[in-house]
């Protein structure tokens, strides 16, 4: 080793400096002890949020159910809060009708897209089409609402001249378009994770691609596909702006998609934007309806999680 290096070595000693810096580290030690607590508090925020949601619903709903009996709320079939009728069935019915229409649109289209992307499309095509399809999922719902009201409804009116401006059909249809990429993308992921060996075994027996898809890929990816559909349905149930803008504000217990309806979410928006005074029965009804909505989506999400957890165990 050269001499200059050795002389430098004598000029200072790193370990000694580290030693002398030790005194300062008592502050460092304090930081070291405080940080985990601080970070835990951050993580606790999400728990507090959940508790806050439950607290909100319980507190305000209790206020509501002291004015309106819980039995009337869930069994009544008239929803006209401004004249004191609080039967939630029409709102639930409206939500389910929208969800049904959206599912009828999104599930077949989404599944077929997923099959096309996963089994038929070239790698290159898939890498282009999938992200473009996912753009649909990133479009703000207020834009979809605008699209439903100003384009889809007039388009449907061309075929159904009697169709009103506000109707469940175009609302539900556009909600379906919105959740389509969710079904397509998650199902495609599930199909993609089916091992190729399974496919090859079927091809080896002389199957066509379609037969491989129907008899091998779909059954193997079944739980992943179901989970994606359940998640998409949950999104449809909670969707607000599209139905507020396009499906109307007429609480209406009907299966007729051409009628104007009102969903739970749309009512919440209507009541929040209207002249609803704090502490009135209508104000509290927001929360009773919100809690019902929350329970619907929570159950859906738990089902989806349960299915996809089982699914993960399979491979």
């Amino acid at each position: 080793m050269d001499k200059s290096l050795q002389s430098e070595g004598k000029s200072f000693n790193v370990q000694q400096m580290i030693e002398s810096n030790k005194k300062k580290t008592s502050i460092g030690e304090k930081i070291e002890r405080i940080i985990p607590t601080l970070l835990f508090l951050c993580a606790a925020v999400s728990v507090v949020t959940t508790v806050g949601i439950l607290f909100t619903f319980l507190r305000e709903s209790i206020g509501f159910f002291s004015d309106v009996s819980i039995i009337d709320f869930y069994t009544g079939s008239q929803w006209s809060p401004w004249s004191g009728e609080f039967g939630v069935a029409p709102l639930i019915g409206g939500t389910l009708l929208i969800t049904l229409i959206a599912t009828i649109v999104a599930v077949p289209l989404g599944l077929m897209s997923a099959i096309f992307l996963s089994e038929y499309a070239s790698d290159k095509a898939r890498r282009v089409i999938k992200p473009v399809l996912e753009v649909l999922a990133g479009i703000p719902t207020v834009v979809y609402g605008y699209f439903a009201l100003t384009f889809v409804t007039p388009m449907f009116q061309f075929f159904l001249p009697d169709l009103g401006i506000f109707n469940a059909l175009s609302g539900g249809f556009v909600v379906g378009i919105m959740i389509l990429p969710m079904v397509a993308s998650l199902s495609e992921d599930a199909m993609n994770s089916v091992p190729n060996a399974l496919r090859e075994a079927a091809y080896g027996l002389g199957s066509t691609k379609l037969e491989v898809v129907v008899k091998v890929v779909l059954p193997a990816a079944f739980s992943g596909i179901v989970a994606s559909i359940v998640l998409a349905i949950s999104r449809a149930i909670g969707e607000t702006m599209i139905v507020t803008i396009a499906a109307g504000a007429t609480p209406n217990l009907t299966l007729n998609p051409t009628e104007s309806i009102q969903t739970m979410t749309a009512f919440i928006v209507q009541a929040a934007t209207g002249d609803t005074s704090f502490g009135s029965t209508i104000y509290y009804s927001l929360y009773a309806v919100g809690m019902t909505l929350f329970v619907f989506t929570l159950v859906m999400n738990l089902i989806a999680q349960y299915i996809s957890r089982k699914f993960r165990e399979e491979y």
Partner: peptide, 16 residues
């Protein structure tokens, strides 16, 4: 990380 911050010293340590 052990508290040595002076640039001249760090320069020397790095070189060495």
């Amino acid at each position: 990380i052990h508290g040595i911050k002076k640039k001249e010293i760090l320069d020397q340590i790095v070189e060495k």
